[in-house]
Simulated scan of single mutants.
Amino acid sequence: MNVTLDVLLRVGGAAVGLVFLMVVGMSAGWRRRADLILLIFCAVAYLLCSSPTRPCCASPWALPLLMGAAGFPFAFWRLARVVLEDETTITPQAWGGLALLLVSAIMTAPDYLQISETTRIVAAIANKVAALGFVGSALWRAWRSWEGDLFEPRRRLRRWLMGYIGVYGLMVMAGEIYFLGARPPAWLDLINAAAIDATLLATLLFFVQLRPRAMDTLFAPRLISASILSSETISEPRTADPSADERLLGKLHTLMSDDKLYRDPDLSVRMLAARAAIPEYVLRRLINEKLGHRNFAEYVNDFRLCEIETRLQDPQWTRRPILTLALEAGFGSVGPFNRAFRKRYGKTPTEFRAEGTEGPRTVAESA
């Protein structure tokens, strides 16, 4: 009875996942949603490969499914970066972690490699450590970047996306670590399969039937305005008078450009809203809708990079170390500064100074 029910749950979940993949893949702008497609595939692969019969460990044709199941933590981490931080790059450390996930999965699965039991156990431990690293990193970054997210509908959706999927993923991995080397009870397998089925079905219904625009919330182009979802997801009062927005933007521009608040490395949405004497949700809306930024760090770094660009091109600052210029402009450390600079100018600060190239100046002047 349990085996039959287990098979029905897994086949049903795989069918829902296939429909989900077809809906996302056939919709307009599917390339922007490639990371969601990857996550769905990995979830379906895990659903199938976690069966008590272990179908992904018996024959070479199932190797892609095994790789998909093993890659779920990476797919989750990747989706979190793209959806919540508008970050599309993959670091060398992440590539290394993915390689560790895949190689250790092959070493752990029976019938693929003839290795000792000790080596197999070590590989299983390494696999779980890498998986925990990806999921934990995604949750940490989601929590850390939540305050600076200016796209209100996305701020709300991340609670479900990261809270439910991430915490559930940690619970599953904790169970796998606890039962390392042994099969979990049949009832636990059934609960796990049912939970995955329910998640896939609920997500499909949410995106396709209940909140079709939620897909655009997560995967819209970088500078899309939050106003596309205002009728569905935003309930805060909005400024009725356009001239009031202009006055607030003028005050904001004075604080940033004249008072140079961006030089404070700890500047946050809350601090800037307090200095401007406006509610936080109004500040978020203004920066997002009027100035085109989806996160607060991007907005503040625009001012910092503009100051650094000017000084790198000014002969009187030639002898000042670049790191000093970055710290004076408000960057807390060299890592975030180098990444932001390279992302904007396509070269390192040292190359920029040496070439004397004038980069684009994009600090919002609309205020």
Rank of each mutant, 00 (worst) to 15 (best):
V24A: 03
V24E: 00
G25N: 03
G25V: 04
G25Q: 03
M26W: 04
M26D: 01
M26K: 01
M26Q: 02
M26S: 04
M26V: 01
A28S: 05
G29V: 00
G29R: 03
G29N: 09
W30V: 04
W30C: 01
W30K: 07
R31A: 03
R32D: 03
R32F: 06
R32T: 01
R33N: 02
R33A: 00
R33W: 00
R33V: 00
A34V: 03
A34E: 00
D35G: 03
I37M: 04
L38N: 05
L39T: 07
L39K: 03
C42P: 09
A43W: 13
A45H: 07
A45I: 10
Y46F: 12
L47N: 06
L47D: 14
L48D: 13
C49K: 03
C49L: 06
S50Y: 00
S50H: 05
S50P: 06
S50L: 08
S51P: 08
S51I: 08
P52V: 11
T53P: 12
T53K: 13
T53D: 08
R54N: 04
R54T: 13
R54L: 10
R54F: 14
R54V: 06
R54G: 02
R54W: 04
C56R: 12
C57L: 15
C57A: 14
C57T: 15
C57G: 12
A58T: 13
A58K: 09
A58R: 14
S59P: 06
P60Y: 09
P60I: 05
W61D: 12
A62R: 10
A62T: 14
A62Q: 07
A62K: 09
A62M: 10
A62V: 08
P64T: 02
P64M: 15
L65I: 06
L66Y: 01
L66C: 02
G68L: 08
A69Y: 08
A70R: 07
F72P: 05
P73M: 06
F74S: 00
F74E: 15
F74M: 02
A75H: 02
A75R: 08
F76N: 01
F76H: 11
F76W: 01
W77Q: 07
R78A: 09
R78N: 11
R78W: 07
L79M: 09
L79Y: 02
L79W: 14
L79I: 02
R81F: 02
V82S: 14
V83F: 14
V83T: 03
V83A: 13
L84R: 08
E85R: 05
E85P: 12
D86Y: 13
D86H: 11
D86V: 10
E87M: 07
E87Y: 05
E87C: 07
T88L: 09
T88R: 10
T88P: 12
T89S: 15
T91V: 05
T91Q: 10
T91S: 11
